[in-house]
């Protein structure tokens, strides 16, 4: 199993935003996965996008300007 400390998640306003982000990110060949939002991060009932921390800057640049709201949090 991957060490959780090497991963982070992006939180979005809604699943529609998360799905859009997933598509944009996967199109750039960056590995990511939609997972339920961990309870300790938010009480929201939706999904978030888990990715490798090493891709953080790349991912932020890709999403900037394409999605109004997203927040990156460590796991």
């Amino acid at each position: 199993m991957t060490d959780p400390s090497s991963q982070a998640v992006v939180l979005f306003a809604s699943i529609s935003h998360a799905l859009r982000a997933e598509k944009i990110i996967k199109a750039q060949n960056i590995s990511c996965k939609l997972i339920p939002v961990p309870r300790h991060l938010s009480s929201d009932c939706g999904v978030c996008l888990r990715f490798n921390l090493s891709d953080r800057n790349l991912l932020e640049n890709i999403l900037q300007g394409k999605l109004d709201f997203f927040e990156i949090m460590s796991l």
Binding site: I15, S16, L19, K23, L34, P36, C45, G46, V47
Partner: peptide, 20 residues
């Protein structure tokens, strides 16, 4: 779609998103 985080929920969400 979008009411949970399980696989089928995400698949349903994808259908809605793709249509959009």
């Amino acid at each position: 779609p979008g009411r949970s985080g399980h696989g089928l929920c995400i698949d349903a969400g994808r259908i809605v998103y793709e249509t959009r």
